[in-house]
């Protein structure tokens, strides 16, 4: 597992797995979209708009997962002085921002026919919007400092302070009475979603994870090369 913390080993490992991951992400995305559009049933209340969920839920999960990965790498990089963590933070932040943006846009496209508005000031929606702004600030920190050694540490400290928002997003639907529905898929209990909708959701989630990994490999390799040339 040394490739997770060492940039040389990461380069070797990434060269091996890049093509399989790319092929797998394309295939899974096509299969998942076919399942989502043609092989899954309509909801009895929401009709065909339920298919937006197959994009919305995976991107929401991945936006949280990306921030979690950045938090872990910030701790590793600051505590054990491993510069690879800073490289991952810089490379991965825009990916998380895009996933959050996809989550917000698809959610508001679903909200217009279902709730009647594009946007409500609900606890979950607000906290996800805050997450998007936090991603934007991380990107701003990364582009507005001149010294690389300074900005990477400051971005890592900001990520650690901003990680307070993560549990607020995760549990906002349980703590407050919100318009957004609580989680239907949890680890501890049997999911309250039908298997015919569960299958495309799982396929789309795995496809999104592989897409994220593909872009992350490209961006991390670019970041390593840029830093070698400074």
């Amino acid at each position: 597992m040394r490739f997770l913390i060492n940039s040389k080993r990461f380069n070797v490992f990434a060269d091996i797995i890049f093509k399989p991951v790319l092929v797998l992400s394309i295939v899974l995305l096509i299969v998942g979209l076919i399942f989502a559009f043609f092989l899954s049933p309509d909801d009895y209340q929401q009709g065909s708009t339920v298919r937006i969920m197959y994009v919305h839920v995976p991107s929401a999960w991945l936006s949280l997962m990306t921030y979690l990965i950045m938090t872990v790498y910030s701790i590793i990089a600051l505590a054990f002085r491993m510069p690879f963590g800073f490289i991952v933070n810089t490379a991965v932040a825009p990916i998380g921002a895009i996933f959050t943006l996809v989550c917000i846009i698809s959610g508001s496209l679903w909200g217009k026919p279902m709730w009647g508005t594009w946007w409500v000031w609900d606890a979950r929606l607000t906290s996800v919007a805050v997450l998007f702004i936090i991603y934007l600030i991380i990107i701003f920190i990364n582009i507005s400092f001149e010294n690389v050694r300074v900005r990477e540490k400051i971005a890592a400290i900001f990520i650690l302070v901003g990680s307070i928002n993560l549990p607020i997003i995760k549990f906002s639907v349980d703590w407050w009475n919100t318009l957004h529905q609580p989680a239907t898929i949890s680890k501890l209990s049997k999911p309250s979603i039908d298997p015919s909708m569960m299958t495309p959701l799982i396929i789309m989630t795995i496809a999104f994870i592989f897409i994220g990994i593909t872009i992350a490999i490209l961006r991390i390799k670019t970041e390593i090369i840029t830093r070698e040339n400074i």
Partner: peptide
Amino acid sequence: SMNLLNKRNYLLGSVIVMIF
């Protein structure tokens, strides 16, 4: 203290305070 060496983007400090 985060923005001490930031010579280009002065408004970043206010944005960080306001988001928290």
